[in-house]
């Protein structure tokens, strides 16, 4: 599209740093950031699947890494990122139907999805730790 670009040095529209941070804006940014994080996080899923296919020795090694403190922190972050991006997607589906554009509704959905993503992440980990019998 190089041809369509104007050679004139036109002023740019104001960007992020101009605006006061607001919840809805932060949620939009976080939706993109979590999407990008999940993009690279998919390597963890690939690693896990490949480890399972590679055989017991390598799988135990990867399983051991996942069980370390750093491994658990990464997986906890992965869980929240996944759930938050998923709920952000659900908000987009609601908007796609043409509904939910009233300011109070937008504000409510932003808060609700943030609370829900944190709550669901906590529940998933509580169930997970309970199932594995870890304290």
């Amino acid at each position: 599209m190089a041809d369509a670009r104007s050679p004139a040095d036109r002023p740019l529209s104001p960007h992020l740093q101009i605006y006061k941070p607001m919840l809805t804006m932060m949620m939009s940014i976080v939706h993109r950031a979590t999407g990008a994080a999940l993009y690279f996080g998919s390597l963890l899923l690939a690693w896990w699947l490949i480890a399972a296919a590679a055989g017991p020795d390598y799988f135990e090694f990867v399983n051991g890494l996942a069980g370390t403190l750093i491994g658990k922190i990464v997986l906890f972050g992965y869980t929240w990122t996944l759930i938050h991006h998923m709920l952000g997607g659900v908000r987009h589906f609601i908007w796609d139907t043409g509904k939910g554009f009233e300011l109070p509704t937008i504000e409510f959905m932003a808060r609700a999805s943030l609370v829900a993503s944190l709550g669901l992440t906590a529940i998933v980990w509580a169930v997970g730790l309970w199932c594995t019998g870890a304290p």
Binding site: G55, P56, G89, V124, G128, C131, T132
Partner: peptide, 22 residues
């Protein structure tokens, strides 16, 4: 849309398999 149930499946799978042997 497809990723919603599939992601839930992944989460349940990982919980079920956490700490299990190869």
């Amino acid at each position: 849309l497809a990723n919603i149930p599939l992601t839930l499946f992944l989460v349940v799978t990982v919980i079920l398999l956490a700490g299990k042997d190869h």
